[in-house]
Design a protein around this nucleic acid. Structure first.
Lengths: 150, 150
DNA sequence: TCTATTAATTAGAATGATTATCACCTAAAA
DNA sequence: TTTTAGGTGATAATCATTCTAATTAATAGA
């Protein structure tokens, strides 16, 4: 935990941003909820427990900043809220998501499945790919069982 | 054009919805702007030219309905607005998008590039894929030229 | 250290997209 | 014709996000 915060601090400093107490509190919340896909509101409520004087706008600004620095990924599942994910150590890209249309669970895929597809896009469309967003909608393992049973 | 409207009419009827004049006007606008990615507001303004008495809420309701029937796809490029695309004749899935981070242009890919990836997800993660959303962010052909020149 | 300047913060107002409500309307069924 | 079930338009309400103004903290230079 502390090392990762230290690292993020350096990333901020390298762009002459500071790791203020509010920003640190926000980052800590993200680290403690790496598996979840928190909305700005969610983050705000969690940060407030440690740093009650923080403002919602500050959380938004912090998430926006972290997003620009590629420390977090801002994602959108189409439910009208942006969600923020810590980018995994060393990851170049967005990870992918499996969204269950039955129960709403979100699973993550760390592996990059799109190497070949990106190559194809670059050669066939002349489009220089920088990043991607891939989400599958379907039925997760758990819900498949339920469906079969009922 | 007329055949496609006829077809959409049937799709609506099959779920006991009606193709009202407002709905038809909305569908016509979508058909006439198949290549664009119109927001609800855009659609509203265009429909208003033909049917000035239509209300914004009706446009939203119509787009939502068409989206449920998989006649249009509701997409989200993260700019805070939902956009609506007519689904191509016979297409099972969402098409993919190439969004240029320089000029904002959006190009479409009709081909389904994800057949193999979907198979892999189904076998490796036991997730039954129903649909997908794939967007690439990068630099389009045009902007690559400009970048090289300058 | 003191001071000027700049960056960051907060609370709350403002904005913009979307959804809900409600009174009215229409078309077709009974 | 009366009934019924959707549809519709205007407008209000809601919700996420951004902006604003005033305040405070941090920093660099004298």
């Amino acid at each position: 935990m502390e090392q990762r915060i230290e690292k993020i601090k350096k990333q901020l400093h390298s762009q002459s941003y500071k790791l203020t107490p509010q920003r640190e509190a926000t980052v800590r919340v993200l680290l403690e909820h790496e598996e979840d896909h928190l909305s700005a509101e969610d983050v705000y409520l969690l940060v407030k427990e440690k740093a009650p004087e923080i403002g919602l706008a500050t959380v938004y600004r912090t998430l926006e900043l972290l997003s620009e620095l590629k420390i977090v990924d801002k994602i959108n599942f189409g439910d009208g809220v942006s969600r923020y994910d810590l980018r995994k150590e060393g990851a170049e890209h967005f990870h992918h998501h499996l969204v269950c249309v039955e129960c709403g669970a979100v699973e993550e895929i760390e592996e990059d499945l799109l190497i070949d597809v990106e190559k194809q896009v670059e050669s066939d469309w002349g489009f220089q790919v920088k990043d991607h967003r891939l989400t599958f909608h379907g039925i997760c393992k758990k819900c498949q069982v339920v469906t079969v049973k009922s």
